[in-house]
Design a protein around this nucleic acid. Structure first.
Length: 249
DNA sequence: AACAGCTACAACCGCAGACTT
DNA sequence: CAAGTCTGCGGTTGTAGCTGT
């Protein structure tokens, strides 16, 4: 037998249920985002006052009083909203332009995912982080000979202006910071700012990590026009080298 | 069909900075 | 000014689904 007061504090973890999503969406629809801890205080605690507060809260958001309520931490609520429930979130795969933009901005700022996400409307920092880790960082050339060979290259390239999918030009002239190499020490992109538009104008130093190779590949795909320092033959040769190296394993 | 390995994604955790008391 | 709280960020983990053997 348990009373309201005797119930243990339980904060749910793991996948969110439809009911929880509904509750959170209702709340935010009415009151806007945050304060996140208010949600946590409304549900999941064990005092009588808080239980009454929970009942009041659920009445307030027009949910049936029989609902079990949210028993999530404020952080969990915030994360769920920002990464999943927010209607502004764009679904589906990243476009080629978005992938190029991520690579360009990552070469500038390193693992500043939230900062990168600011320039990709509808994409979350979590999504970008996952993209980088699963599709860029993990694609490492494993052949030692290839690594040795690839380390010889320092390929200059000029990347086009950063254009976000909506077509507007990014203005980050006031946010330029020099690259942080602690997380991708071999990827360099020198920058210059022209008419407040970001122009990457430097080199990718193709080093010993797969992320650099991937960065190089995508960067070379985006290097178009007269300012391109990379010829297609060179790009193809490098990727043939990589494929050969992988076949050799 | 069964299993193992891989991939993509959702979610949690710890930390740090901002803010409040 | 110190302590406590809140919020946001980046790293990491867990797992469902897919693919190859």
């Amino acid at each position: 037998m348990s009373t309201l007061i005797e119930e243990e504090i339980e904060v749910r973890k793991g996948p969110w249920t439809t009911e929880e999503d509904t509750l959170l969406t209702h709340y935010i629809g009415r009151h806007g985002v945050g304060p996140w801890n208010m949600l946590a205080k409304c549900a999941g605690t064990n005092t009588l006052i808080n239980k009454l507060f929970t009942l009041f809260f659920m009445f307030w958001v027009d949910l049936p009083l029989t609902s079990s309520g949210l028993k999530r931490s404020g952080k969990s609520c915030r994360l769920r909203w920002l990464n999943y429930l927010n209607p502004d979130i764009k679904r589906g795969n990243l476009t080629l332009q978005e992938q190029q933009l991520i690579l360009q901005l990552h070469s500038l700022w390193g693992n500043r995912w939230s900062k990168i996400a600011e320039h990709l409307p509808g994409r979350t920092d979590n999504e970008i982080k996952n993209y980088w880790r699963t599709r860029v960082q993990n694609k490492q050339p494993s052949s030692s000979s290839l690594k040795e060979m690839s380390s010889q290259f320092s390929v200059p390239c000029q990347l086009p202006e950063c254009i976000v999918p909506s077509g507007s030009v990014i203005n980050i002239s006031e946010q330029i910071e020099f690259p942080q190499h602690e997380t991708s020490p071999n990827a360099y992109a020198h920058t210059c700012v022209d008419n407040n538009n970001l122009v990457l104008n430097g080199s990718y130093n193709i080093g010993r990590s797969g992320q650099d190779m991937e960065a190089f590949r995508l960067a070379s795909m985006s290097a178009v026009g007269e300012g391109c320092w990379i010829c297609n033959e060179m790009t193809d040769s490098l990727w043939q080298c990589r494929e050969l190296g992988e076949m050799g394993n």
